[in-house]
Design a binder for these strands. Structure first.
Length: 434
RNA sequence: GCGGAUGUAGCUCAGUUGGUUAGAGCGUCGGGUUGUGGUUCCGAAGGCCGUGGGUUCAAUUCCCAUCAUUCGCCCCA
């Protein structure tokens, strides 16, 4: 029985071309997020299991967390999300932080689940959070960041849509307007979450079940789920503070050129810790009908650590869904290698050529050396395949004359120059590209 | 946890209505006289036909199981 060459189920190997793409994505993302004044943090991949028991949601802790008992008998989890961790970090310095705190990170997260399109067991997720800003400004800024990220990849606003809702409004509607008790409310939120995927008859039947066949409730619930705009809400809730917050957010977004944001009463989000405005960014490509970014306000999480509450809002965005988005909209660029030049040695010149190679590197060039004994055409082929643009030849004749052929594999041009001239022409090319 | 699809060369896939030595393209490696790629020409290597069991004179092919991949459901960042 030989060893398997496959990576662990639901996890990926990153070969250089994959890593390049990953780096490109997160370099772009970091640039945008930093432009809003966010600073990067990080934390251990392991956390005590009880961190997630508090507020995340039962199913996630019971079935989706990788956990084990360490040698000291501690229950340990591999982090399935970053929000509890960052809340812990803020709580630990609750008194001394300069608010509003703007932090981001790009952790890898693990969840034990069945892999499928857009969902793996390990993924990297951008987390952006703002602590200490209680108003709509926080939610607006986060959506601006999300929008800015997509635009930075060359996306246009028709490629995605921002859906907005308010947990508080949903709670009020379900408990006061519909008069459902906790168990019914839970069942209804789960139903709402997936109602667009179900047939109308199935939804109707499920509503009737949830409402215990109470005709008045069934009617009100059915009506509520058909609401498409704030104006269609029941009259007594049109000016509820939770509704006002949504209206205010939509207003500030459209005043700032974000025209693809809409109120969506079906937007729920799975985590129990959300307390106010919630939003998700969806790919409008039907092949990729998944949420790419999701987040909202979770004012209660920091205070779980026994400190004064901090108003908080944040969002997460996974690398897998983003890559699917970029791919389906053809927004992935060709990413060249970082290697500037391949120095091809001809004959027994290794020691003398090494001095030249060092000179090139001291000038900041990325230089690979081919000292193998393969034939020249094979070496050139390999350089081409690796996407290295320049090839410099070093052999006995060149060393004697101190003139080296530099070949540009794209144009096919080849000229002989001394080392300093070679360095500047490669550097010139590099600044020209960047 | 549930359901569908698929496992043949490094990759993409043919194929065998069950029958000797298993096929292509691409890729890899070597060569087309000794120091120049992307287009060509010649050649070679490389497969327990996912794994285990069953039926059969005979299984890569049919049946069962299992594992893996993948799409969807459940759930959801």
């Amino acid at each position: 029985m030989s060893l398997s060459m496959q990576p662990y189920k639901g996890a990926r190997d990153f070969y250089p071309e994959d890593k390049r793409l990953h780096d490109y994505m997160f370099t772009t993302i970091r640039r945008v997020v930093r432009s809003f004044g966010y600073e990067e943090y990080d934390a251990p991949i392991l956390e005590p299991l009880e961190l997630y028991k508090a507020k995340t949601g039962d199913e996630i802790v019971n079935e989706q967390v990788y956990n084990f008992t360490d040698r000291g008998g501690r229950e340990v989890a591999i982090r399935p999300e970053m929000t509890p961790t960052v809340s812990r970090m803020v709580a630990a310095r609750r008194q001394e932080l300069p608010y509003p705190v703007r932090w981001f990170s790009v952790p890898n997260l693990w969840r034990y689940e069945r892999p499928q399109r857009g969902r793996l067991r390990e993924h990297w997720q951008l987390n952006v959070d703002i602590f200490g800003e209680e108003g709509v400004a926080a939610d607006h800024e986060l959506i601006e960041v999300a929008d800015g990220i997509l635009k930075a990849f060359g996306a246009t606003s028709s490629m995605y849509q921002v859906k907005i809702n308010n947990r508080e409004l949903i709670d009020v509607l379900i408990k006061d307007y519909l008069g459902l008790h906790d168990e019914q409310a839970h069942a209804l939120t789960k139903l709402i979450d997936r109602m667009y995927k179900l047939d109308k008859e199935v939804v109707d039947k499920a509503i009737a079940d949830v409402c215990g066949q109470d005709q008045t409730k069934i009617q009100k619930t059915t009506g509520l789920l058909q609401v498409k705009s704030l104006d269609q809400l029941p009259a007594e809730y049109k000016d509820h503070p939770a509704t006002v917050a949504i209206r205010e957010l939509l207003g500030v977004l459209s005043a700032n050129r974000i025209d693809n944001a809409v109120f969506d009463i079906s937007l729920m989000r799975g985590f129990d810790y959300y307390t106010g405005l919630v939003f998700e960014v969806f790919d409008t490509n039907p092949d990729n009908n998944r949420s790419m970014f999701g987040g909202g306000r979770y004012d209660g999480l920091v205070s779980l650590f026994g400190v004064e509450p901090v108003p908080t809002a944040g969002f997460g965005m996974g690398d897998v869904t983003l890559a699917n988005f970029l791919d389906s909209h053809k927004l992935l660029p060709e990413l060249p290698t970082e290697t500037d030049v391949l120095v091809v040695l001809i004959g027994d010149v290794y020691s003398r050529a090494s001095k030249i190679v060092r000179e090139l590197r001291e000038e900041g060039l990325n230089v690979a050396v081919d000292a193998s004994s393969r034939k020249l055409d094979k070496k050139l082929k390999a350089a081409d395949k690796r996407g290295i643009r320049f090839v410099m030849f070093v052999g006995e004749d060149e060393l004697a004359a101190e003139q080296y052929p530099l070949k540009d594999l794209v144009t096919g041009n080849e000229e002989k120059h001394a080392v300093p001239r070679i360095i500047t022409s490669i550097q010139d090319y590099r600044t020209q590209v960047n």
